[in-house]
Design a binder for these strands. Sequence first.
DNA 1: GCGACAG
DNA 2: ATCTTGTCGC
Length: 221
Amino acid sequence: MSELFFARRFNTGNARKLQIRLSEKVIQKDCFSEPIQYVGGVDIAYDGKESIGAVAVFEYEQMKLVETATSRQTTTIPYIPTFLSFREIPPAVSAFKKLQRTPDVVLVDGQGIAHPRRLGFASHLGLVLDMPTIGVAKSVLCGEVRDNGGKRWKPLVYKGNVIGAAVETRPHVKPVYVSVGHKVSLESAIKIVLHCARGYRIPEPLREAHKEAERGKGGKS
DNA sequence: GCGACAG
DNA sequence: ATCTTGTCGC
């Protein structure tokens, strides 16, 4: 009962101010050691009133799954466009705490700084975990793709600034929208996403995290 | 004021 | 996100 009340009273005004304040702390430079050894993927699934957070960790070079972790808890905040992170961070962080190995960089299902206030789920999560994160979204939240040459990626521009890139992970397939989450440059983010995409539009760590979250439905974790 | 709007 | 039948193609 209290959760529902809290959800209805979610204060977008305060959340908006927090986003603006936090967005200034986002670091857009590579803050991880090379070569990358482990990459993680985070995704959230919903089962009725509960959220299932899942994390999958892959060995970078071979792209082999080495570990997964999930966490199931009551959903506390409703989905409100541009405030997705407040809803998904709790289950994501909870799943992360169960990991044995800490990935060097994490792919997140959503936008990084490609957000109206430059603080999408991937950036917010990166700040909370103090870890390098990359936003990988399946559709655009804001901005427009600038038609450039025949590269594998095109810049996503919003109000005159490049906030991310539409990356064609597979030929002739709808692109995924990559943006800086935290502690990584856009160039590296694109390179990492392309490395992790093996035969499918969605990078392996995210595909696996999605499957893991689906498996968490109808049970506990 | 109106329309758009990650998952 | 979630629900949901059939269909096309490797």
